[in-house]
Amino acid sequence: MLALAVVLRFKATSADRSVLDALQHALTYWSKTRDFIPARAADGRLLDLRFASANWQRAIRDRKQPGMLVKRHFEAMVFAYLAEELRTGDIAVDGAAEYGDWSSHLLSFDECRPLLAAYCAEAGLPESAAEFVAELKQRHRQAAEHLDAGYADNEDLTFAKNGTPTLKRLGGLGTSVAATKLGAEIN
C-alpha cells in the first residue's frame, strides 16, 4: 500500500488536507524499522489527527511512549481513512477515472450563467438573488403564521415564563390487537 501511495498523486478536493498530511508522515517513516514514530511532522508541528475516531486515537498511541505514534497502527489508520476519503470524493487521484476529482466535471459559473434563467423557470425559483431572498422570507413568514395560528389547538406545547418551550410527554396508545396476538404466538 505504501509503495502504491508513493506512485499515485493524491489531491484534496476540499481545504482539509489532514489525511493527506498523515499519509505523507507515514511515507516519511515508511523505510524505518522502528515501532514508534514521532507525532510531529518534519517541520515540528503536531500532526492534525482530529479526523480519527476515538478508537483509532487510542490504537495509535502508547502511554509508555508520549509524543510518539505506534507506526503500524498509524499506517493502518491512515489507509483506512484514505480509502474512505477516496470513496466519498474528498480526496482524488490525479488522472484517475473512478477516483478522480469530481469537481473538475462541474460547470464554471460563467458556463452556468446563460442556463440560469431556464433552470430557475423550470425549478420555479426566482432568477435574481434579491427576488429569491424575498420569496424565502415570505415562505418563512407564512410558515410562522401558520404555526402561530395552530398554537391554540396544540395542547402538548407550553411555554414557561422565561419563554422556554416544553412538549408534554405523550401517553401510550396501548397495545394493538395484532401485537397482543403476535406476543401470544411467540410465547
Rank of each mutant, 00 (worst) to 15 (best):
M1P: 11
L4F: 09
A5P: 05
V6P: 06
V6F: 15
V6C: 12
R9E: 12
F10A: 00
V19I: 13
L20R: 04
A22F: 07
L23I: 02
Q24D: 11
T28N: 08
Y29N: 03
W30D: 15
I37K: 03
I37Q: 08
A42P: 08
G44Q: 06
L46M: 10
L49R: 07
F51Y: 05
A52K: 07
A54E: 10
N55E: 13
Q57V: 01
R58D: 00
L69W: 00
L69E: 02
F74L: 03
A76N: 13
M77P: 04
M77V: 05
L82F: 03
A83D: 15
E84Y: 07
E85N: 14
V93Q: 06
D94Y: 10
G95E: 04
A96P: 07
C112E: 13
L116G: 04
A117F: 09
Y119W: 14
P126E: 05
E127G: 10
S128D: 02
F132L: 15
F132W: 12
F132N: 05
E135M: 11
R139W: 03
A144E: 11
L147D: 11
G150F: 02
A152F: 03
D156P: 00
P165W: 01
P165R: 07
R169W: 07
V177M: 10
V177H: 10
I186K: 06
I186G: 02
